[in-house]
C-alpha cells in the first residue's frame, strides 16, 4: 500500500452476501501483513447512524476499501456526506473477487482508482459544500 495510504475493511456483519471464506481470508491476510489498517463491523450500519468515525475513515489521501460493489460503496460514503475521492480510491469487491485478488490489490503499493464516474451529488454533500463555503 502506498505510503500514507489507508486500508479499510468492511466485515458486512449483518448479511451473508459476502462469502465467509473470502472475508475470513482477507482478514487473516491483513492481520499477517503487518500493515496499518482499519476494520469496521458494517459500513452500511455506520452510514445509517451517520457515525462520526466515517469522517476519520475517509480523511483524505489514498484509500483502498475492501467491501462490495464500487457503485454501492461510492454512494454509501456519498450519502453520509463524505464523498470518496475518485482519483485516490480503489474499491475491492469481496462479493465478486477471490480473497487472493482482494489481498493482492490491498497490499500492492500502487493504487488503481476505480470509483464509478459520474457527476451526481448526494444532498448531504451539497449541504456540506455550502457550509464549507460560508
Amino acid at each position: 500500500m502506498a505510503e500514507n495510504g489507508k486500508i479499510l475493511y468492511c466485515n458486512c456483519a449483518h448479511a451473508k452476501v459476502v462469502p465467509d471464506e473470502v472475508k475470513e481470508a482477507v482478514l487473516d491476510g491483513l492481520c499477517e501483513s503487518g500493515l496499518e489498517w482499519q476494520a469496521v463491523s458494517d459500513l452500511c450500519e455506520m452510514v445509517a447512524r451517520r457515525d462520526p468515525a466515517l469522517r476519520q475513515l475517509h480523511g483524505g489521501g489514498p484509500l483502498k476499501v475492501a467491501a462490495c460493489y464500487p457503485r454501492a460503496v461510492k454512494w454509501l460514503f456519498g450519502s453520509a456526506g463524505v464523498p470518496l475521492d475518485p482519483a485516490q480510491t480503489q474499491i475491492c469487491n469481496m462479493r465478486e473477487e477471490s480473497a487472493e485478488q482482494v489481498l493482492s490489490q490491498l497490499t500492492h503499493l500502487e493504487l488503481t482508482p476505480n470509483v464509478p464516474e459520474g457527476a451526481g451529488k448526494a444532498p448531504r454533500e451539497i449541504v456540506d459544500e455550502a457550509e464549507d463555503s460560508r
Binding site: S41, A48, A72, W75, L76, S79, G118, K121
Partner: peptide, 19 residues
C-alpha cells in the same frame, strides 16, 4: 453507544449519478 445487534442495516442507497 449504539447496540449493534439491535438493527439489521437494511435501507436504500441512492445512486445520484442515475437519479
Amino acid at each position: 453507544h449504539f447496540d449493534h445487534k439491535s438493527w439489521k442495516p437494511w435501507f436504500p442507497v441512492i445512486d445520484y449519478d442515475r437519479c
